[in-house]
Write a protein that binds this DNA or RNA. Structure first.
Length: 472
RNA sequence: GGCGCUGUAGAACAGGGGUUAGUUCAGCGGGCUCUCAAUCCGCAAACCGGGGUUCGAGUCCCCGCAGCGCUACCA
């Protein structure tokens, strides 16, 4: 049944970065297509030559690939289809459903501004539609835009997410189809493309609701059937305004660079504005596809929560095997060195990272000598008795032949008993000496992993540091 | 201003006429423990307002209010 094939598209305009709102739209289209066994088409809406850049196109592709959203067709470029729109526009012109407009955009803008200042709604007055042949004559050689003659009456369409939406025809002005430079406007190109690409469901942002009646009118003018619409709620910043750069990281690219897993980003975006099942939020992509509920998408604009994204990332890290995690880190160039050593570092560290970059950023002491020591740590653990204890510890540890966590622990605790100290009073300064920090994975496991040589060296270095402090 | 969309804890989602209004993140407190994570236990926290309909309304209807979106020869 070829003619009932479900086809959806993601149609971004390449004017900047891949905003996570756009990513969510792409994801929902993709999930829907895969869920119903349809096709997912990528179309680049680059008719605004001033703002479209090649770099922005690349970012869209790489962001989609990063997220694991694969398109079945395209990318199609509207910039390569200009002639098509022109032909279709001519047809409407011929049939009197559209007309040539010679008005200066700047002039119209002025009139609009004036009406606005007067607090009155502005609609294009159809000046050029009412032009008599005599008036038209002298303008014949002027550049013109093609305007759509909006018919009276109201437009109602069913929205899969919101139910019926109705807008009165009187609210619509005669909008431009083709600019005077021959390029199509968004609404026109969108219809021609969705029609010629046989799009069956248009899943897009809520900000397109006001465009929908205009587009439906164009479909009607050609006597085409329009696709089914589903308008997704917006994604907002914490202050409930449209998510933008002001709110910090808003692009897929930015989250990738911070070390977020695509699995987590996809999961978080999917949960933002929909419920797949009650009481469950962590899903793999294949599960998202299987359960995707277009009918259960929320109508309400959702605030993007960066904290929850962190949680999703931790959850997806937990889902990975240590081996898988290691592979990922290696691919990204976030760690390097002996595989066995890295593997052991990861087992200690994997429950303590939020983002992939943390492995190196937060646990660099597994890879290099600590250069500085935590300030409050130094305040607490730089006294004379600490110095003395560390010296003893250093000697004692140097004598260990098998440098194993259990034996190290025994040695440390025995010394504590001998000196009538709580083990803490040895453990904390040791941690500071070895990591430069007051927090770390379990001390003894960490020591075993670092190995005797490094442990002894670092204790030595720390002893020198304390001496300096005490001599001052 | 006009038109449209939307309103359940700080945030995201359940609940769709009868529930002690549920889950997750964040917050707070506690257990475990060498610290931090992880984990476990607990606390606090919501139906935008007002009218209806009904024995009974987050839930259905109406009216407000608020937030957001659109209002281009941008997409």
């Amino acid at each position: 049944m070829k003619n009932t094939e479900i086809r959806v598209r993601f149609a971004p305009s390449p004017t900047g970065f891949m905003h996570i709102g756009n990513a969510r739209t792409a994801l929902y289209n993709y999930l829907f297509a895969r869920n119903v066994g349809g096709r997912f088409i990528l179309r680049v809406e680059d008719t605004d030559f001033e703002r479209s850049t090649q770099q922005a196109k690349e970012v869209i592709f790489s962001s989609l690939k990063f997220l694991g959203i694969e398109w079945d067709e395209g990318p199609y470029y509207q910039s390569e289809r200009i002639h098509l729109y022109q032909e279709f526009a001519k047809e409407l012109l011929k049939r009197g459903i559209a007309y040539k407009c010679y008005c200066e955009p700047q002039e119209l803008e002025q009139r609009r501004l004036m009406m606005q200042a007067a607090g009155k709604p502005y609609k294009y007055e159809r000046t050029c539609y009412h032009l008599t042949p005599e008036e038209k004559q002298p303008k014949e050689n002027l550049p013109f835009a093609i305007r759509f003659l909006v018919p009276p009456g109201e437009v109602t369409f069913p929205d899969l997410i919101r139910g019926n939406i109705t807008i009165k025809g009187e609210e619509l002005e005669d909008f431009v189809l083709l600019r005077s430079d021959g390029t199509p406007t968004y609404n026109f190109a969108c219809v021609i493309d969705d029609y010629s690409m046989k799009i069956t469901q248009v899943i897009r942002g809520e900000d397109h609701i006001p465009n929908t009646p205009k587009q439906i009118l164009i479909y009607k003018a050609y006597q085409w059937e329009h696709p089914i619409y589903a308008h997704l709620p917006m994604i907002m910043g914490p202050d409930h305004t449209k998510l933008s750069k002001r709110h910090g990281a808003t692009s897929v690219e930015a989250y990738r660079e911070m070390g977020y897993l695509p699995e987590a980003l996809v999961n978080a975006l999917a949960m933002l504005g929909a419920s797949f099942e009650p009481d469950r939020e962590v899903y793999r992509l294949d599960e998202l596809i299987k359960l995707f509920p277009l009918n259960n998408v929320s109508k309400k604009a959702a605030v993007f929560n960066a904290e929850k994204l962190k949680w999703f990332n931790r959850e997806h890290i937990k889902l990975m095997t240590t081996e898988g995690l290691l592979l990922r880190l290696l691919e990204l160039g976030l760690v390097s060195g002996d595989i066995n050593y890295l593997r052991r570092v990861l087992t200690l560290v994997r429950d303590r990272i939020t983002v992939l970059n943390d492995v190196y950023n937060e646990f660099n002491y597994f890879f290099e000598e600590p250069k500085t020591y935590d300030d409050t740590g130094l305040v607490n653990w730089s006294g004379k008795e600490v110095l003395e204890n560390l010296r003893l510890l250093k000697d004692k540890l140097s004598e260990l032949t098998d440098f194993l966590a259990s034996l190290i622990e025994k040695a440390v605790r025995t010394l504590a008993e001998e000196k009538n100290l709580k083990a803490k009073n040895l453990i904390h300064p040791l941690r500071l000496a070895l990591s430069g920090k007051t927090v770390s994975p379990g001390l003894f496991e960490m020591m075993e992993l670092l190995g005797k040589t490094r442990v002894v060296t670092r204790i030595g270095a720390f002893i020198e540091k304390i001496k300096q402090i005490n001599d001052r």
